[in-house]
């Protein structure tokens, strides 16, 4: 099932994220990724959550959450009109010079940044769509991933459409 992207603008106060995730749990959806940060002025927080499920059922969940007092705006973003980005920090095992060379090549191919090089490790920053980040991870698996951390998806709609101005 496809990933749906749900964007929120909420009051920046304790318990709001708990209420959102509690509601998602109650309807038996699982959160695939979540990103959240307080906005300028810190009165509001923008949250992006992705979850797998029938888009029609996700829409019902969105309607339920729209009722919550501390949620200012919530909507499921139209996948055709949305830009999504994910970022990964990947630490590779590159003790073998050949492995290091190959790693740098793949990182370059994905327009990644090299954030740290030690004699036997490389840390790469890869930004792109979920698929691009997944593809990168697959390509470097045989070199040896020591550790990887991903931000999860953040997303924004194209053109003049915004969360506040649908």
């Amino acid at each position: 099932m496809s990933l749906s992207v749900i964007s929120f603008l909420v009051e920046n106060k304790p318990g709001v994220l708990f209420n959102i995730s509690n509601n998602i749990r109650r309807k038996n959806f699982n959160i695939h990724s979540i990103t959240a940060i307080a906005g300028e002025g810190e009165d509001t927080t923008r949250i992006t959550i992705t979850s797998r499920g029938d888009p029609k059922e996700i829409d019902k969940l969105v309607e339920q959450m729209n009722k919550m007092v501390d949620i200012i705006i919530v909507k499921r973003l139209d996948p055709l009109r949305t830009i999504q980005r994910d970022m990964a920090l990947v630490k590779l095992h590159t003790a073998d010079p050949m492995a290091q060379e190959e790693a740098l090549e793949i990182i370059n191919k994905y327009k990644g940044l090299i954030l740290d090089i030690k004699p036997d490790t490389v840390i790469a920053q890869i930004t792109g769509s979920v698929n691009e980040v997944n593809d990168f991870t697959k390509e470097v698996t045989h070199i040896g991933i020591i550790e990887a951390a991903r931000t999860g998806i953040t997303a924004i709609e194209k053109g003049w459409v915004t969360l506040k101005e649908p």
């Binding site: 318990g15 708990f18 509601n23 109650r26 009722k67 007092v69």
Partner: peptide, 11 residues
């Protein structure tokens, strides 16, 4: 009680 009643209150 805020956690306990989260899913049974309007607010």
């Amino acid at each position: 009680i805020i956690g306990v009643t989260a899913s049974i209150t309007k607010w």
